[in-house]
Design a protein around this nucleic acid. Structure first.
Length: 461
RNA sequence: GGUACUCUGGCAGAACGGUUAUGCGUGAGCCUGCAAAGCUUAUACAAGGGGGUUCGACUCCCUCGGGUACCUCCA
């Protein structure tokens, strides 16, 4: 599998000979997560599920930034504590992402639970003369890291001239960034240099190295983190460990609204909660995977609606397979195999989920076509089902479950309807159909039998 | 201003030098008691503009232009 690496700007082979170690920058927990977070995390969710499907072990570490000025500000506004705020939004996070059918990461380390590791990390940097203490905190000396700017392709001198940062006179260089900030406002921790809290970038360096080692496979996050966050992480980590940090940097494009980046400051945020309520997890996942991960995607009702149409086809396919009982038609194993390979190849080639979805939908369409032609036999169906399920599992698409008692009730109603139809009492028959519709059960009349499917309830429809 | 990415049909979106995918939408027809689902078929002589390189370019190079992101916290 090859992934386009932001640092080297070429596709790099992912080493799958042993466990693949991935560090994903998670969220700062001071507010609700939005659809932009969802995209990044869904992309990595599918990545790990794909590798797992190949039988490859995954270690996925995703942090929670739970100490930050924004959290503290929020706590002040809400007359609460930083801890309460972060706890609340971590709970919120899991609610959202469980709802999106995202598999839990191996571990979700929190900055506040790794203060010791962070302090040790900073100590090493100071020992090496790369960090220094000043009046307001401990800073990382950018000039001591010769390759600074290699990820974001920025030149140090250009950065300096364009620097608009409020300059702390105590800093040796305006580009230097804080690894430890002195402070008396809670939350604070004691450190060898004074009371305070860690800077933003240091936690990811400390925690990724702790959990995944000096040199791990993939480091991911949104494109907007390239600078300064990931640039600084590289500087800190490589200075500290003297070895290459992540092998591959994989960055996910932004979700835009009307072509503009979604962000708190613009106020055009779509919360996951909101979108989930209206569209459900499957459609959101299809939407998030509909373009190449590295490019931006524009959020719009039309696109979600398009994915709803597609989702209905998947549901139809699912139930056609469940109810298949025609004569088995000619060899379709070749087709299944080919599409399975297409699917995998697409993902192997810089994780092209769009092409993988094409293969998936082709299988769906072929199946629906066979079914409509009364050519879908049980053996056929079993073969397709197996492959389709595999793809669905990787993509994280879930067909809602249905209980046995529901099934019985449906079968009974369909039987009644059939009798009415035979006697040409169509009004009565249609009433039953309406009733089933209300239960979100849709009927598909084949030539000599009727099958049913349970449709996911989509509020926006 | 710098850097990166991007510019393909009504919309979405691929192919990374050599049959103009694919999906949605739309039109027509078929199937059906009616629906739904499904099927068939039709839908750009496209590639931001202009130059090259090449037997041949959406794909490589140059140039001009548009867009977005980052350069401050941000997935």
């Amino acid at each position: 599998m090859k992934i386009q690496d932001t640092l080297s700007n070429v596709e790099q082979e992912v080493d799958i000979s042993k466990n693949v170690k991935i560090y994903l920058c998670g969220v700062t927990v001071y507010d609700e997560s939005h659809i932009g977070h969802a995209r990044t995390i869904i992309v990595f969710d599918v990545l790990r599920k794909y590798l797992e499907n190949k039988g490859i072990g995954i270690e996925l570490i995703q942090n929670f930034t739970d100490v930050d000025d924004k959290i503290i500000n929020r706590a002040q506004i809400e007359n609460s504590t930083a801890e309460e705020i972060s706890t609340k939004y971590i709970e919120n996070y899991f609610k959202d992402f469980d709802g999106l059918n995202v598999k839990r990461a191996t571990n979700y380390p929190k900055a506040t639970e790794h203060i010791d590791d962070i302090i040790k990390f900073i100590e090493k940097l100071i020992e090496k003369g790369i960090s220094y203490t000043s009046k307001n905190g401990v800073y990382f000396s950018v000039s001591k890291f010769p390759n600074y700017g290699k990820l974001s392709k920025k030149k140090i001198d250009e950065l300096q001239s364009g620097s608009r940062i409020g300059i702390d006179e105590q800093k040796k260089d305006p580009l230097d960034f804080a690894v430890w900030k002195f402070s008396d406002t809670e939350p604070t921790w004691d450190s060898p240099w004074g009371k305070g809290r860690p800077g933003w970038h240091i936690e990811c360096s400390a925690m990724s190295v702790k959990y995944l080692g000096n040199n791990f496979d993939i480091h991911g996050g949104g494109r907007d983190l390239i600078f300064p966050h990931h640039e600084n992480e590289i500087a800190q980590s490589e200075s500290c460990t003297n070895s290459q940090f992540a092998k591959i940097w994989m960055h996910v494009g932004m979700v835009t609204i009307d072509g503009e980046k979604m962000s708190k400051s613009t106020g055009n945020v779509k919360s996951i909660k909101h979108v989930l309520e209206n569209w459900g997890p499957n459609i959101i996942r299809l939407f998030c995977l509909s373009g190449h991960y590295s490019k931006p995607i524009d959020y719009s009702e039309e696109l979600l609606k398009e994915n709803l149409t597609k989702w209905r086809q998947v549901e139809t396919c699912h139930y056609e397979l469940v109810h298949a009982n025609n004569e088995n038609s000619e060899e379709i194993t070749q087709m299944i195999k080919k599409l399975g390979i297409d699917f995998d190849n697409s993902l192997d080639n810089d994780f092209n989920t769009h092409l993988a979805l094409s293969a998936f939908f082709q299988l769906v369409k072929e199946t629906n076509k066979l079914a409509a032609d009364e050519k879908l036999g049980k053996n056929n169906a079993d073969g397709i089902k197996k492959e389709l399920k595999r793809m669905q599992k990787i993509l994280g698409l879930l067909i809602p479950e249905i209980t046995d008692s529901e099934k019985e009730e449906i079968d009974e109603l369909i039987k009644n309807r059939e009798e009415h139809r035979k006697e040409k009492q169509f009004e009565k028959a249609d009433k039953i159909r309406d009733k089933l519709n209300e239960m979100n059960i849709e009927l598909i009349d084949h030539k000599n039998r009727t099958i049913w499917m349970k449709k996911e309830r989509i509020k926006s429809q």
